[in-house]
Write a protein that binds this DNA or RNA. Sequence first.
DNA 1: ATACGTTTGTATCTTTAGCTACAAACGCAA
DNA 2: TTGCGTTTGTAGCTAAAGATACAAACGTAT
Lengths: 231, 231
Amino acid sequence: MNIFKLLKKNKLFYNFEDKEINKIFDCLNGHINKYSRGRVVAEIGAPVTEIGIILTGAAVKFIQKPNGELENCGELYAGDMFGEVEGYTGDHTYNSSVVVAEESTILYISVDTIVKQCSNTCACHQKLLENVLSCLAERIDNINNDAKYLKIKSMRGKISKLFYDRYLAQGTETIHLGFNRNEMAEYLNVSRPSMSREMIAMREDGIISFRKDEIVIHNVDELARLANSAR
Amino acid sequence: MNIFKLLKKNKLFYNFEDKEINKIFDCLNGHINKYSRGRVVAEIGAPVTEIGIILTGAAVKFIQKPNGELENCGELYAGDMFGEVEGYTGDHTYNSSVVVAEESTILYISVDTIVKQCSNTCACHQKLLENVLSCLAERIDNINNDAKYLKIKSMRGKISKLFYDRYLAQGTETIHLGFNRNEMAEYLNVSRPSMSREMIAMREDGIISFRKDEIVIHNVDELARLANSAR
DNA sequence: ATACGTTTGTATCTTTAGCTACAAACGCAA
DNA sequence: TTGCGTTTGTAGCTAAAGATACAAACGTAT
């Protein structure tokens, strides 16, 4: 797969032309490295000078618990990046380590040069800057939204909000989760059997029906009421 | 209070000199408005072209639930701002309304000009840009951290993590919360009596003692264990 | 010192979700 | 079609936290 297509999958390069992407290598100290499985490409506490963007392969992120233990806290695939938050916070050091999970290529661009103006009057700086900003701002939106589910205490409330949000986003009474029960339970931070139990109760109440990851909403008003009054 | 001192309380102007702040009004279309109680200064769905920074007074943020109802979702005081997230996300419209709660003055600076380079070679753009970035990145850190408390299921786990985090931050075995029980319970998203019950159980177990918002940690190791193993 | 409002502690009861272990249904490949 | 692994549904029990309502302690102003 060619590098331009790959990079365009990354939000940092939204709206970029091929030739603008090329300029990255001149203006932003862009460079590409290749790693094999097990290689540590970011280490907790180390200074962040570059944003890393996975071009091919995959990597795993680990945070360190105060007792020293490492905990898996997410996976990175082609188009994903790391360091874009830490690069601009407090002490500019990684707060998670990134370990390559399979043979991977990673593009790095310099954190500093993104905000610095360069002598070549290129549009790419400007665009990249806007994209970095949207990227961070969007992330805030997303996390905030996820936190909403966590704050709801009742099982029915959590489920209702999830389904209702999907209904609003997809616009149809038949929605697809892209989750199996396990994943959905994990996302909502509840146990799967308890969740199943409540979904079935909601079905008995005529609010929804479902099969696998396809949910049909039979009583939108009630679902909306549940989602909005959830505490 | 003078405007320079006020602005320096805001993270956007971290590291600014007085004369650099003055440039804001030239380069960034900075302007100040005065409002009385009840005035709506941001409306859900309206385009965001400026970041608003409260100089004096106070305001309240409301989100709109899908049924149309408004819900208080936070207060803004001197030094706080609004629009800095929405200004750089998706459709660049407010997702919460801001209503002035008491006579207030608000400084606005243009969202666009922050990322644009200006002809005057001034350092203020550059600095402001870095500050906007840190601001957003820091926010991500903070929300992520808050979400951690919400994900912990056991009462003891939540309490332990909160106290242990404070212990790590303050570095002393006597920590001050800056919370009363009600506020703490709200922050942890639990009921106050249940929380009280568990705090007392932890005291009986010799882990902590407390009086008002002063907590003394007697068994740091155990607290750490609880905080780190919390599920 | 007293009286009042606020914060914190206590008791009782109920509700809810967690957990475990198992059964049924499904999907897919041999 | 049969069999196997995975996903989903079910049951019973337990533990834990919610709700409510009240009591005690504290702070503070008169």
